[in-house]
Structures are given as structure tokens and as C-alpha cells.
Simulated assay, not measured.
Amino acid sequence: MAEKWEGTSFVILSISHDAGLKEALSSIEQITLVVQRESMDSTINHNAIFLDGSLVNYKDVKYIREQCPTVPIFYKMNRVTNQTLTKNIHAVCTAYNIHTVQENLVGHQIVNEVKKVLFEEDYDEGKRVISFSGTHSGSGVSTTTLNVAKNLAEKTEEKVLVLSLNPWDPADYFIDYTGKYLDDIKVDLKTKNLTEQKLMDATTNVNGFYMLAGNRDIKLQRYFSPQEVNHLISIAKKTFDVVLIDTGTHFDNACYAQSYVESEMKFLITTQEPKGYRGYWPHIFHQLIQPIGGKSEDYMLIINQYESEMSVISEKDLAEELDMFHLVSIPDEGTLGVQAIARKDLLFNIATREYRQAISTISDSIMARAKLKLREDYDSHDRRKGIFGFVFPNKDKKVM
């Protein structure tokens, strides 16, 4: 961490040809001047350096550090398509005390990173943005997100939105979805013409909450830019009181990067399958999450489809292996999940009491963190309905 600056003027030397970056840095109140060049200029007295990866190769940062041994230096990664390269860049920058800035950040997010390092100002803009991610395909991210949204909508009068930012899965098959999709509003996102009314019109009302389904266009899976996704989240925050983001299980794209930056609460969903917590996730964490400054404690762990069998890993061991706080385990509901999808209904409506209680624990944690008010008419008496709408006593065993 750089020492807090207490001088009367502050100059940043920006090695970049991005006029937008200069404008963003110039907006920082404490900064007197941003000098933009395409290479190092030793004639300029500066208090910090910002290196744009589009002009400066990460292999050259050691020479820049040698020229400027004490000033804070930032390095913004650019078009890094290889996970190993991302890890290498972060390692090199760390070795020379250079702060890495991930490439999927937009102007005001870069500003916040710079403020945090230079002036010890920490920002937390997420407030009511919550992200759900999974360690592997089939871990239950969409199912959990939608059912938490349904329970939240029951408990609070706040407007709840489920925003599907999974470019690989629209997650529209759980309900009778009639709204637009992420790819349908791509032009509005690119031109920054999405409005609160347009977003509202694009959603579907489901059991009291709203949903915007994800991308259906295979050709667009990796072509949502950071600026587009940030524009969508910004409008969503203005339109709705609570935004639950379904990020899916892919982490190497702008949709996830923006979700990570903008969300205050981050839930990681896994199962007791080793391919998730021991196979896929460690690679993701070490190669993608850590290089952007992420830590395991950033996430709250949800174990889905939980079975208390001796032959599989326990809750305690799984939490210790991932080094995360374990919030709750959601029981395996057998074929009820398949039946719910077939009926275009949410699992919460036909699930066991244990499932509903687990989902309620998640929604309660969100309400506490986001400071949401409980509806005065909310009935917390826990009863469950069976598949055909009959009410069963709470002591009934799980339907198989």
C-alpha cells in the first residue's frame, strides 16, 4: 500500500493513448494534472504512473520501476486471453510493487481503485447488488438464485430483480418466461441507450420478482464488453431495489468481472462432487480470482444438493478446503427439481421444509446486509405444498 499523499499538488503520468482513461483520472479531486504520453518521459515530475497494457508490455515494468523506485505505479492489463499469462502478469507486478488493474474495469471503477491506493479512500457502491456463482456446471446457480428471489419477494416490498449475466445459459426454462433476453438489448447496451423503462419492459414478473433472462446468441457469448455490462448493472440499480446476479460458472468474461466488482455480497455455490471444489474451482481461483485481488473470504459458501453420507465430504471439511465461511447447505430434493422445471414452477413452491428453510437463510442474510424491511403482513409460518397443491404437515419426510 502506498503512503497516503498529503501534498498540495498531484501529477499522474499516464502511458496510454486512451483519452477516456485520462478523463477518468482527471476527475479525481486530489489530482492536479494528468499528463498523457505514449512512452516514459523523464522530464515530467510526477507523483504516480499509470501504465496501459495496450502500450506497455508487462515484461518492461521492471525497467520502469528501476527508473521510478518510490512512486506508486498501476498496470492495467489488456487483451489477456490466456489464464497463465494473467497469473504471470500479476506475479511480475507484485514482485515490483506495482498495482495491477484488471482489464474489464470501466472508468469510474478504475478511479475507485486509484483512490483506494493513493488516497486510502475505500468505496463500496454495491450495497444491494448480490452475485451467485458456481464452482462447476450443474451446481445449481440459477435454481438457487431464482428461489432466493422468490423468497425475498415474499418477505419485502422492495423491487427484486434477477439479472442473468450468464452468456452461456439464459436460464429461462425454470419459468414461463415472456420477457426479452440479454442479447435482445445488446444494441441499447452498446450505445448506452438502455433506460429504466426499457429495462422494466424487458423483464418478466415471476412470483413477485422480476427477471431478465441471459444470452441466447452463441456468437455473442464472449462479446459483451465491460462498458456494456456496467451500463446494464447501473440501470438495474436505479430501477430495482435489490439486484441478484446469476453469473453461472464461467469466470473469464466481462459479465462475471463486472458482477464481481459491483456486488457487495458474493455467494459461491458448490456440491459435494470433487470435480467442482477440487477440480475446477482451484484453477479458477488461482488463475482468475487471485490475480485481480480476490480472496476466498470474499465469498459466502452455499453447499447445494447436500447429502449427509459418510462416503462424501462433510460440510466442515468442504468449507475448510475452500477456506470460506459456510452459510448454509441446501438439501438434495431428488426428483422434485425436475418436476418443478416440467411444471414451469419454482422449486420453492413444492419443496420440503428443509429446502425452504435453507433458502430462507440465504434471503435473511441478504435482507440483513442490504437493510431491507420485512413486510408487515409476511407470514413466517413454515408450511409446504405438495406437487398437486395439497398442504402437508411439516413433519412429513421428503418426497422422492
Rank of each mutant, 00 (worst) to 15 (best):
A2I: 11
E6F: 15
V11R: 02
H17G: 12
K22F: 05
A24Y: 05
S39N: 13
M40N: 02
D41N: 07
H46S: 15
A48H: 03
A48G: 08
G53M: 00
S54L: 09
S54W: 05
Y58F: 09
D60M: 09
R65K: 07
C68L: 13
P69M: 03
N78H: 15
L85P: 08
N88G: 09
N88K: 13
A91T: 10
V92R: 09
C93T: 08
H99I: 11
Q109M: 06
Q109L: 05
I110L: 08
N112C: 13
F119D: 00
E121S: 08
D122A: 14
Y123Q: 10
V129T: 07
T135L: 04
H136L: 12
S137W: 12
G140I: 06
T145R: 01
V148A: 06
A153Y: 01
K159T: 07
W168K: 11
D172T: 09
Y177W: 08
K180A: 07
L182S: 00
D184H: 10
T191G: 09
M211Y: 11
G214C: 04
N215G: 05
S225F: 12
P226Q: 07
Q227P: 08
H231R: 00
V242D: 01
Y256A: 01
A257G: 07
Q258W: 07
Y260N: 00
K266V: 06
L268V: 07
I269Q: 01
E273N: 13
G276T: 04
F285G: 02
I292N: 03
S296D: 15
E297G: 14
Y306D: 05
E309H: 13
S311D: 15
I313H: 02
L322A: 02
H326I: 09
S329M: 11
D332H: 14
L346P: 01
I350K: 03
T352A: 11
R356Y: 09
S365W: 14
M367G: 08
G386H: 15
P393W: 08
K395L: 08
K398H: 12
